[in-house]
Design a protein around this nucleic acid. Structure first.
Lengths: 228, 228
DNA sequence: TTCGTCATGTAATGGGTTACATGATTAC
DNA sequence: GTAATCATGTAACCCATTACATGACGAA
């Protein structure tokens, strides 16, 4: 019983929605696609997959479409287990996507939500972005309040740490502002379009949400070659 | 047996080194002084304090210096328990401060280390800052490598998330650069001073490490009063 | 007198990692 | 043939949270 990670479950469902995969690959995608943040281990992932199967959200399929599966059916041969989202799983994920409770604004949860914005309807995207922003603004208030209360007693390094922390949060707020603005722009731009009725069947996220920003290319960075 | 949180233990020792405190207060300081990051709960803190006492790093003292302690010695009266660092505890903390193993460069561990830079010798500060920086540079490399590998397959939002993540890391690297630079400046500036021999007895961190940056003052921010 | 905050604790539970065990497949 | 990497799993532990239980103290 139990073993419900929330964020892991969500991410697994989201990735499998795009295409079936086996555990090993899933884990890698988890650590890059959502990445930066979480690095789930197999000890977490595999048990989680099992409970998802038990819940009926996933089914296990043996490796290559049909040939290999029959080539070595019974004996020791350990097969790759490919997980595929069931219809119920799809529905469940859709449910999760539409939930905008306060949890969704926490750091890691938010990142996971954002990673699947491509499959999220615009109004939900808006709610999540705005919720996150006000969550951060709250945090900011608390921080500067406690800073005001204690500033005298703190040494320079502690102060600097605090300052840098607040600046990081402020920076994320600015980022969210940009995102929200361009979501709004996208919405307004579509306001005069034929119709939409778009509520679910949200396989496509109604596109059009991101600020123009080509040249993400990491500048080749010559000099400095600490590569191991 | 067990119950060694590393970072919590470290932070508790560090705070108590500055002055004795009881658990409740300790917790608040933990969430502000180091704050922003961690918010330890009592369920974590109190058991930890016990093991620290058991290890001999701390001793428990009953509340007000002597009067109160005698005023209600036996019956139900629940006394504040003030924790004070023992000589061994002090020594132990000094040990921890001087350790610069790879753990010290991880996010939260690093923050805890930084929070006590005021009690850390300059050379250790340098090692920690530089270690942290190269840790982040590694991370940056991995991120852009995996980005290069997968960029085509990712949708715009995932990409944007990745980009923002990398930018955050880059920003911290720049911050570290500033800090390292001003540590170096402080060191050079002192190069011609009488002597120092300063190795430990590091109650004062040899000062002089931070970039000039007055006006941290959060601008009073009139308008907006969402305070609860 | 009741409410908020100070103050200390414990048991159950959660969510995750590490280390280990096993074995197939590929590249050299 | 042997090393790296792919691939799946389990058991033991770790760190921390939640919810609960208890109670004092001050202010409205």
């Amino acid at each position: 019983m139990s073993r419900r990670s929330g964020i892991l479950e969500f991410a697994v469902l989201g990735l499998l929605r795009e295409s079936p995969m086996h555990g090993y690959e899933l884990r890698k995608r988890l650590n890059t696609s959502l990445g930066v943040f979480r690095a789930f281990s197999y000890g977490t992932l595999y048990p989680c997959l099992k409970t998802l199967v038990a819940s009926g959200w996933l089914i296990e399929e043996s490796g290559g479409a049909s040939e290999e599966a029959l080539a070595a059916p019974l004996s020791g041969r350990r097969a790759k287990i490919v997980y595929r989202l069931t219809a119920e799983g799809k529905e469940h994920f859709e449910d999760l996507l539409s939930q905008t409770g306060p949890d969704a604004y926490e750091d890691e949860h938010f990142a996971a939500r954002f990673a699947f914005f491509g499959q999220t309807s615009r109004d939900v995207r808006m709610r999540v972005l705005e919720g996150r922003r006000s969550r951060l603004e709250e945090r900011l208030e608390k921080m500067s309040a406690s800073l005001a209360r204690t500033r005298e007693r703190l040494d320079d390094y502690t102060l600097e740490l605090q300052r840098h922390g607040m600046e990081s949060v402020e920076r994320e707020v600015r980022w969210l502002n940009e995102l929200i603005e361009s979501e709004r722009a996208g919405r307004d731009q579509q306001r005069s379009a034929p119709d939409s009725s778009a509520q679910h069947d949200s396989t496509s996220g109604e596109s059009g949400g991101l600020p123009r920003r080509r040249e993400t290319n990491p500048p080749p960075d010559p000099s400095d070659d600490t590569a191991k």
